[in-house]
Every structure is written in structure tokens, then in C-alpha cells.
Amino acid sequence: MKKLSARRRHPLAAVVVLLFALAATGGLYAVFAPADQAQADETAQSLAIDEGKKLYSVGCSSCHGANGQGGSDGPSLAGVGSAAVDFQVGTGRMPAATSQGAQVPKKKKIYSQAEIDQLAAYIASLGVGPTVPKPEQYSIKDADIGHGGELFRNNCAQCHNFTGEGGALTEGKYAPSLEGVDPKYIYEAMQTGPQNMPSFPDSTMPEEAKKDIIAYLDAVNGEDTPNPGGLKLGGLGPVSEGLFAWIFGLGALVATAVWVAARTAKAKKS
């Protein structure tokens, strides 16, 4: 201690103390203040929005307007949220350019997921809307499949058929098949109500219910759903069954009848 107190009047003492103080403050600041991090994030976000806007200007603005305000060929995108962008672009429905039919069909997606995220960030910046769900929101762990089935038959089967095989709507429109659709997109579709579909926001269909529905679809129309009865025949019900009965059932029986009738006991010659 003597050494230290002896030099406290040293001309450089003030400089040393200042250095210590600066180091301590800077260190503490660095440890305790998240402000720096936030700054960095915001930069990434604004970067994504900027990139998204560029992508938007090239691929989307001709129909949806230069600033997403909508036009004669496409609706306004203010407030549709990132979930809608992720669904529409992720399933290849957007950009719709080539489609002039009654409804925009599912196609091969042309943007990478990173680009879709940038587009989504830009659109989300235009107004508040449903956000892309996190994996745990559509995870089917611990979901109630039976309850999901009831919800599905009550809310979805009218258009999508008993097990989500799809069905016809008016004037050439249709409810698409849900077979093999990523749970994320099913969740987003329920959130945002794309095209002819009504939306089921969390206020009418809570997150848990959406999980149950996704779990039910996975159980009855998933990739490894067993078909205990054999060939599913499209899962379309009596029409395909009737066709099968006529063509393969009666067809096989008539062929057999022809075969049996052709093999008759011949009267002995001579």
C-alpha cells in the first residue's frame, strides 16, 4: 500500500485513474448494456426490409403496386403479415404471373427461404398482420388427434373433404388437397385465409386447436398414414369406389365368364 500511496501525487496518476475508470465503465457498459446488440439487430432487420423491397420491386410490384398498395391485378398487401407472404410465396402460389384461371394454383416455389423471409419482412413492415409461426406453434407433440378430427369435420371438411383430399367450389375454384402439405403452411393458411378460404385467427381458433387439426391431418392423411383397407382409391368416396367396382370388379367377372363359357364340354366326335 505504501508504494501506491507514495505515488498518488505522480503526474501520471490522474491519467492512470482515468484509464482505469474508462476501462471499468466501458467493460461494465459492454457487459450490461444490450443496446449495442439491438442496434446490430435493427440493422439486420432494416437490411432484410431493404433487400425484401428490392425483391418486391422486381417480382411483385407490377400487380401489387410499387409500395404494396395494391392495384387492378392484385390486392393491397398492407396488414397481410409475414405469414401470408410465407404461405403464398412458399407454396409457389405467388408470384402468380402465369395463372389466368379461376384460382391461383400451387406451383414450384421460385424464391429461396431466405428471400421469402426478406420479402416477408418487407411486407410485415407495411402494416401489422399475422406473423410466421414458430415450429413449436405447429408441432403436433401432445396434440389431441380426436379433437382435431371433430374440429376438421366441423370447419374444414365442407370444402376439403373428410380427410383433406380437396373438393370443388363454384366456377372452377377449388379447395386444394392437403395431402403432404407442410404443417407450417396449414397453420399459415388457417391464420391468413388465402384466396377463397376463410381465415381462422387465434380469436376464433386458438393455437391449441390449430395444432389438433394439424395432428389429425397428419394421422389420417400424412406421409406414413397406414391404409388398413388397402388401396385408398384417392380417398374420394363412393364415386371412385363405383368406378373401381364396374371396371375392375365387374370387368374381371365378365372376363372370367367369357373364359368359362369358351371352355365348354364338346360333344365327342365320330
Partner: peptide, 30 residues
């Protein structure tokens, strides 16, 4: 053989009847 190969009327996929529910593609047998 047909019955062993092809499924018909998979009632487990259709759910129990409730008068307040309906599905698209509801047709009778041919």
C-alpha cells in the same frame, strides 16, 4: 381378392355422423 386389395367405405376416415357437420364429396354408392 378385390376386397383384400382395395379399401371401400373407410368409415374410420369419415367420422361419426352429426347433423351439424357435412363434408364435400358426399355421394351415395353408385
Amino acid at each position: 381378392a378385390i376386397a383384400a386389395i382395395a379399401s371401400i367405405n373407410p368409415i374410420w376416415a369419415l367420422g361419426p355422423y352429426r347433423p351439424d357437420m357435412v363434408s364435400t364429396g358426399a355421394q351415395p354408392d353408385w
